[in-house]
């Protein structure tokens, strides 16, 4: 064996593995995925009236008081930028964290001044991805009074709707209870549209 004994295996194997694990492997996963799970593979997109209005898995902001609001988001340059996921990275002792939470509390209170319930923690903190599609059931129930008022609906009906969208931890054990905000709001829109006119 000469001094460069490692050279040929290095070049050959690096080349072959690049082809095998960098081309053949991902492409064959893609091919099988597209045949078996086409919706998931393309991002679980949601359409309404022929328009893509989001994804089952990606959160979006809802500005109007008549919708359930998502959690705050730390993505830049705008909230829920699904092209650039990000957390706030605010440390637990950073005064900026408390300041932002105070602002969010003020905004929620301003939108529904009569509701003096304590606000669920997830509704005033940002997620790790900035794209959290969920809020806790408690955070949805907290918003019922505002949504019901804005839409002129009975709070009980809205509460009922929230409960139909509550997902309990998988297997009763793993994960935390959550509500998909987009699904809930789409159902809210269609519930109002299908409401029989009472005249």
């Amino acid at each position: 064996m000469n001094r460069f004994y490692a050279l040929r295996p290095t070049l050959v194997l690096l080349g072959i593995f690049t082809l095998l694990t960098g081309v053949i492997y991902p492409l064959s996963v893609t091919a099988v995925a597209h045949a078996a799970f086409p919706k998931q593979a393309h991002g679980s997109l949601v359409q309404r009236d022929g328009k893509v209005v989001g994804s089952d898995l990606i959160g979006q902001p809802f500005a109007d008081p008549k919708y359930f609001w998502s959690r705050p988001s730390a993505t830049t340059p705008f909230e829920y930028n699904a092209g650039s996921s990000s957390a706030s990275n605010l440390g637990p002792s950073n005064p900026a964290l408390r300041q932002r939470v105070e602002e969010r509390i003020a905004a929620l209170r301003a939108a529904d001044p009569e509701n003096l319930d304590p606000i669920p923690i997830d509704l005033v903190t940002t997620s790790a991805s900035g794209l959290d599609p969920h809020i806790s059931p408690a955070a949805a129930l907290y918003q019922v009074s505002r949504v019901a008022k804005a839409r002129g609906l009975a709070p009980d009906r809205v509460t009922q709707l929230v409960y139909t969208f509550v997902k309990r931890p998988a297997l009763g054990l793993l994960g935390a209870p959550h509500v998909n905000v987009l699904h809930l709001n789409l159902a809210l829109d269609s519930m109002v549209e299908n409401q029989p006119s009472t005249k």
Partner: peptide
């Protein structure tokens, strides 16, 4: 005025930088 407590309806705790699911 924040509810931090874990219950059947929320995880509670320190949710800054964590996902609800």
């Amino acid at each position: 005025p924040i509810d931090h407590t874990a219950s059947q309806l929320m995880s509670g705790g320190n949710m800054e930088g964590k996902e609800v699911r």
